[in-house]
């Protein structure tokens, strides 16, 4: 049952290429956003560490991959790798600051760090292009075979393939003893040291992992749009990521994917219907789902499924 649903999800994602051929660029964005929300889920949903500044890693990854290509090395996969490594490194360096206190300090420190990074990018136009954005990003074909095209077909498959592979890795990790320990830390951080768990070390590890995921998502955006703007580092990106996670369901990997898909599509559809008021309806949905618990859309779906069977 579970496996069948999982297969259906990914087949539908793949099939969307033929079902919505006009919307390939949008769908490509959806996979990238989904990867970003997945990175938040690892940190917030599983380990219970709060953040309002995850765009720092997304943006760092975007600029790293963008600048690498701009400087003449347009090979996509090495761009992803560089983005992941740099973001993980930034995660390792900043983790002690973020994990120093409780929830509120974590929110403030992550927010502060991401604002600093955004301002630095703004003030260094020689490197980042500043407010004009990073131009001149030239990508080589993926695996030397698939050229990025104007219709977003390569971007669609490339982003979906990366999302799928990193999703499988996240699935493996969250089901592992390490993943169980993370959930234990979220469930009761006081008990874990009494079981012998070095809580700090586990949280630093997942923080760096989550940062790397966000960095790869940013790199995908830079590569598929061949452009990076300051928007990649914006507070709005961090906040919307959290919003999508809560919308989809915390602490469940498919919740992250579902939240990203639902939010981006709702954004697209609602903003065409009523350009001014689409945020109102997102707000209504968010308040409703947040009050209903941490389950989000995924929890709602599971509930309906159980009701249907009973």
């Amino acid at each position: 049952m579970r496996l069948a649903l999982e297969a259906a999800f990914w087949l539908l994602a793949l099939a969307s290429h033929w079902l919505l051929p006009e919307q390939l660029p949008l769908l490509g964005q959806v996979w990238i956003v989904a990867l970003f929300v997945l990175s938040l889920d690892l940190l917030v949903g599983f380990a219970g560490v709060l953040t309002l500044g995850h765009a720092a890693f997304f943006g760092l990854g975007a600029y790293a991959a963008g600048i690498l290509a701009q400087q003449g090395w347009g090979e996509p996969l090495s761009g992803l790798l560089l983005a992941a490594l740099l973001a993980a490194l930034l995660g390792l360096v900043t983790a002690p600051l973020v994990l120093h206190g409780g929830d509120l300090p974590a929110l403030m420190v992550t927010l502060g760090l991401s604002l600093m990074l955004a301002e630095a990018a703004n003030k260094l136009p020689g490197i980042t292009g500043g407010a004009d954005g990073l131009l001149g990003v030239e990508m080589w074909p993926v695996l030397g075979l698939f050229r990025f095209d104007l219709f977003g077909r390569t971007a669609f498959f490339y982003a979906l393939a990366v999302l799928f592979l990193l999703f499988l890795l996240a699935r493996l990790i969250t089901a592992s003893p390490f993943g169980l320990a993370l959930r234990g830390i979220r469930g009761n951080a006081r008990r874990m040291p009494a079981l012998g768990t070095p809580v700090r070390a586990r949280l630093v590890a997942v923080y760096a992992l989550s940062a790397a995921y966000a960095g790869v998502a940013g790199a995908l955006l830079a590569q598929t749009t061949q452009f990076v703007s300051l928007d990649a580092l914006s507070f709005q990106r961090s906040a919307e990521g959290l919003l999508m996670l809560v919308l989809g369901g915390l602490g469940a990997l498919y919740g992250a994917l579902l939240g990203a898909v639902a939010f981006t599509l709702a954004h697209h559809i609602l903003s065409e219907m009523s350009p001014l008021f689409w945020q109102f309806w997102i707000g209504v949905a968010l308040v409703g789902l947040a009050l209903a618990g941490r389950g989000g859309l995924l929890g709602l779906g599971a509930l309906l499924l159980r009701r249907g069977r009973a």
């Binding site: 592992s176 993943g179 169980l180 320990a181 768990t197």
Partner: peptide, 17 residues
């Protein structure tokens, strides 16, 4: 979880519980 911790296995991420 407690047993995995006793056995020093909670840093393992590559096999499911």
């Amino acid at each position: 979880l407690a047993l995995l911790e006793r056995e020093g296995l909670t840093a393992r991420w590559w096999r499911p519980v």
